[in-house]
Nucleic acid binder design. Sequence first.
DNA 1: CATGAATGAGGGTTCATTCAT
DNA 2: CATGAATGAACCCTCATTCAT
Lengths: 215, 215, 215, 215
Amino acid sequence: MKDHRTIVAEERRQRMRARLLKGAFQVLSQYGSEAKVIDKVIKTAGVSRGTFYNYFKTNEELFAEVSRAVSNEIIRIVDPIVVQQRDPAARIACGLVLVLRLAKRAPILAHFVARGGPLAMGVGNVATEVVPREIRAGRASGHFTIADEELAFDLVLGPIIMAFHRIAQSEISEAYSTQFAQNVLQALGVEPRLAKEYASVDFADIELPEHSMLI
Amino acid sequence: MKDHRTIVAEERRQRMRARLLKGAFQVLSQYGSEAKVIDKVIKTAGVSRGTFYNYFKTNEELFAEVSRAVSNEIIRIVDPIVVQQRDPAARIACGLVLVLRLAKRAPILAHFVARGGPLAMGVGNVATEVVPREIRAGRASGHFTIADEELAFDLVLGPIIMAFHRIAQSEISEAYSTQFAQNVLQALGVEPRLAKEYASVDFADIELPEHSMLI
Amino acid sequence: MKDHRTIVAEERRQRMRARLLKGAFQVLSQYGSEAKVIDKVIKTAGVSRGTFYNYFKTNEELFAEVSRAVSNEIIRIVDPIVVQQRDPAARIACGLVLVLRLAKRAPILAHFVARGGPLAMGVGNVATEVVPREIRAGRASGHFTIADEELAFDLVLGPIIMAFHRIAQSEISEAYSTQFAQNVLQALGVEPRLAKEYASVDFADIELPEHSMLI
Amino acid sequence: MKDHRTIVAEERRQRMRARLLKGAFQVLSQYGSEAKVIDKVIKTAGVSRGTFYNYFKTNEELFAEVSRAVSNEIIRIVDPIVVQQRDPAARIACGLVLVLRLAKRAPILAHFVARGGPLAMGVGNVATEVVPREIRAGRASGHFTIADEELAFDLVLGPIIMAFHRIAQSEISEAYSTQFAQNVLQALGVEPRLAKEYASVDFADIELPEHSMLI
DNA sequence: CATGAATGAGGGTTCATTCAT
DNA sequence: CATGAATGAACCCTCATTCAT
């Protein structure tokens, strides 16, 4: 059992870590994943060089950890609403709509993905865990005619990247999101009438936690 | 009228420029569009520092010029075959299939786009000129039900980026390409049966010019 | 109140700074104020590239700081003796003799000024503060007949530059210094017999601090 | 005996050389003697890199040649008037006044010397030939009490450098020039009343040749 | 001779990383 | 643990000089 001092120290460590990750996320969004970043991060987080290295050893590790953290944050926000949908197609539609909504509310997220490209969707990210699962479910349910699951994955993720890019550049209408979800479902082989139905549901709104790293 | 010396000099300049662009393309594919690459480029091209600066002033200018050159090269290779198709949907299908085929034959192209993300598809690139034109034609022909042309653009380009990413990572089957074209057409609202028909045509094969910068 | 760590760190910073200034002084003396010297400075000071940039941002800043430091050093050495003289003419004579003596003992100082020319006598330097003050005092005392104070300044500084140039090239006799002071005073309108008297005083000798940057 | 072709070629060579020297003089005045200059010179002269090297081998050689050329030009302009004076002291006064007048009319000359410092007065320059001769003459005539001829040289040249520096910076009055000459003579030991007389002569005005390199 | 592309040494600047305090 | 000075590799860019045409 840990004594009190240990616990307090551990909490401080976690807060510091969160602070660094948040700063890094902002900087990476703005300057790209290849940017020389540490200087800006420690400035943003108001912390010394040495401290940074007590938490992350390299640039790449930092980028990976930020990706994971962002991914977790997205799931934490979007999943509670997604799981309320019964049908896999509906769940995908819901995820797509909410994720675009999230990017509109948290533009750095849009930038982060737009700059990072496919690589920002790396291992451990929401996409690589949740999307394939729903695709399999959709095929099992008979709604998706598509056979190749990797292709299906690409048909979902690719448009998301482009949509994020668009959001990062300008604005998108609410209609864009709905249409977006519908047409992605069509790409997966969902019958257009059904796709439209699933995409048009009035999903509950997302809620950004007070200190979310996304804002 | 130019004298002989002038003409010869001009030709040499063009060859040097092409050599630098080719080297830059390789390096940018590997290190990403934001990387500090000049050193690597001159090593790859086997040329001196000073020479590089006789042709390009900055990293960004270099990237832009490479993009343009790559774009032109793609069009030069793919377009002659695409224009043989009568229907816009067929032309899009044809373009998609051939472009994936090209990426398989020229993996650096795949890497270049995968690393660059949406930004590698910047202004002046094949995508931003040719794709929108065909989308408009497709809507006019009544085959595409999709209304929002920007959305349509994203539904075509996004999957291409992901497919290139996949090609850059491993391999894709010939079946992937055909399915890919079909499902993208479906995303645009082409009726599945028709989409399949257009995507299944046995398009003429591309021909890579001997000294193409893509290989 | 500063804690011990802070104080120690501050002292180390000062020592490093002094080391760099001393190295820069040597290099600038040799290559001139406009030379690209950073490389040579860090080699002379035995310090890394990065360290240099922790202290000075540009070549110009470096030159300015060196000038200031040299200037302060000269004053620190010469002034205590100069102020022992009561008459302004005597003070100028004293300053001239001691400054030449100093240049003989610290030949890099001679080089520094010879190479830098009038510009090495820039703002903030000993000359622009002390000399005009004594000139005004000399005029007030009635010993200097010269009316134009700018001209007077030029008649003092110009010969110093040339004398430093001469010292940098070869050697000068002790007689040169005395004569020098006398004749400069004459240029300012001091009566020759008086000028000789003031210039012939056997001024106390200068003392170079142990770690002076001038040697 | 040269044939006609040779003569024409020789003339063209001389014109080219003069063009380069003039350009170099301008550039050196503006950027200092240590500036990286060749690019600017060939641009100013509108000539190719290669051509430059047909005339001058190195930067230093160029600087030396410019100094010589400038020196000759000054003598060509000033000497005809100086030699009209009978007394050495008068000749020195005349030279001083005219040289300042020249610097006012040709500010690049002032800059050139101000930047170059003592070094711009190098071997082969007007100063090192003419001034010592007149000093010796002055001592022989009994007007100069100064014994050390090197010191005398410094007392003349130093003030000139400073005066040129002042001219390069702002403006000087006609009175400055006259006073200047008088006080320099005093520095050399000329009796003040005589010095004033010599310096106050209304010397004939200089004439700048049409294509003088000084303007 | 004139030309200007190519060269590469020289110098500048940044930034991830280490380490003594 | 936190701090921040020091390090040096990796870049960037310029410019005097050469040389094939």
